[in-house]
Design a protein around this nucleic acid. Structure first.
Length: 121
DNA sequence: GCACTGACGCGGG
DNA sequence: TCCCGCGCCAGTG
């Protein structure tokens, strides 16, 4: 499914030290309703192994489990290593999207659109 | 083809 | 702001 290839490209555009939400990824893929599929793709490695899946969280900034990581807090550690603040809440580990959320620019969108057409996806 | 599931999102109360 | 319910759609059995 081309959607997954797009998701992979989008994830790779997330800058170091930033975090993006599933809905945001889906939106940039041109499928605003496919947030769930983004999660599915990453958890099953359908987007490839070289994508920074640790920078993808849900809309609330929660690190939704560690389904695709070797250890439970690997995702948290990688984010902290990149300079992202990670807070512990009763819901789990959370990042401050206000501060460390990826604010995708028009350039990002245009670049992605170009890559999509270039790769025919 | 049908029903159920899931790393989700959003609007309404 | 928090909580709840409904919507979504690709995969899977």
């Amino acid at each position: 499914m081309d959607f997954y290839k797009r998701a992979a490209l989008v994830c790779q555009q997330i800058p170091r030290g930033k975090a993006a939400s599933y809905g945001q990824i889906a939106l940039l893929c041109g499928k605003p309703k496919n947030a769930r599929q983004v999660g599915y793709a990453l958890s099953h490695g359908l987007a490839g192994e070289d994508v920074p899946a640790h920078r993808v969280v849900n809309a609330k900034g929660i690190l939704s489990g560690a389904a695709a990581f070797a250890t439970a807090d690997l995702q948290k550690q990688m984010l902290q290593h990149e300079g992202v603040e990670v807070f512990w809440t009763e819901d789990g580990w959370r990042v401050d999207l206000k501060k460390d959320g990826w604010k995708n620019t028009m350039e990002d969108a245009l670049y992605l659109r170009e890559e999509f057409s270039k790769k025919g996806i």
